[in-house]
Design a protein around this nucleic acid. Structure first.
Lengths: 109, 109
DNA sequence: ATTCTATCCATAGATAATCTATATATAGAC
DNA sequence: GTCTATATATAGATTATCTATGGATAGAAT
């Protein structure tokens, strides 16, 4: 029984960056946003999400600050940096290239 | 410097199965075929290829037999089994679903 | 003859991404 | 006062892929 994957490996950073490109957001919100906008197909597990955010911080692609949510809870808000925006562009174009290439392999007679 | 990946993780089995769905082939031939039909975008390294083929054998998705190539060299030819054909269908539909979902996340205003 | 290139297989070990499981904490609803 | 959803985080396991080897041989080129 091949288990259905939660997401395509290698695409998480891109999805997070893209989500933050729309608006700064806290981790939990990012996960919810991706889940909802993908119609529940993509699920970002906590054990994937937070390490990924640490990676992005380390790379300088996002910055973080603690704030209160609208509902008065403490949360860490992430914002895309200029470098992160650039990186998003790179990842988007690489992804598109990959998908196109895979498409060619799959359709090929 | 983010290194350009050779392929999208999680898609190799699908690519191999699809390649074998067209014709039985030996490992080296599979790698060449994927590389060529993807216009050199996808490269299957030997260290990924042969372990992958072992996995597929173990799952019963392919079977193997030693033969001579047209150029008189010994090679191990892989053939898709009925189970492998079924698996290919599963992976294709999951992949398509994933790509669609990612597309929604990426285009979303 | 011999050296080079392409063909062919395979494994060991490193690296990296993701998942499972767990821990902690609190706001607000019931 | 208990439950649910919100919120962050890490440890450890699992798995996929890559890098780096090692071996073997056919046929072409020198």
């Amino acid at each position: 029984m091949t288990k259905k994957p939660d997401l395509l490996p290698g695409t998480l950073d891109m999805l997070i960056l893209k989500t933050l490109a729309r608006a700064p957001m806290h981790g939990y919100g990012i996960a919810l946003s991706i889940k909802r906008s993908s119609d529940d197909v993509l699920t970002v597990e906590e054990g994937s999400l937070y390490p990924a955010l640490q990676r992005l911080l380390l790379q300088g692609w996002v910055k973080a600050e603690w704030k209160k949510t609208e509902t008065n809870r403490r949360a860490r808000y992430y914002t895309l940096t200029p470098l992160g925006r650039k990186q998003l562009g790179i990842e988007l174009s690489q992804f598109e290239q990959m998908i196109t290439a895979i498409g060619r392999v799959l359709q090929d007679a």
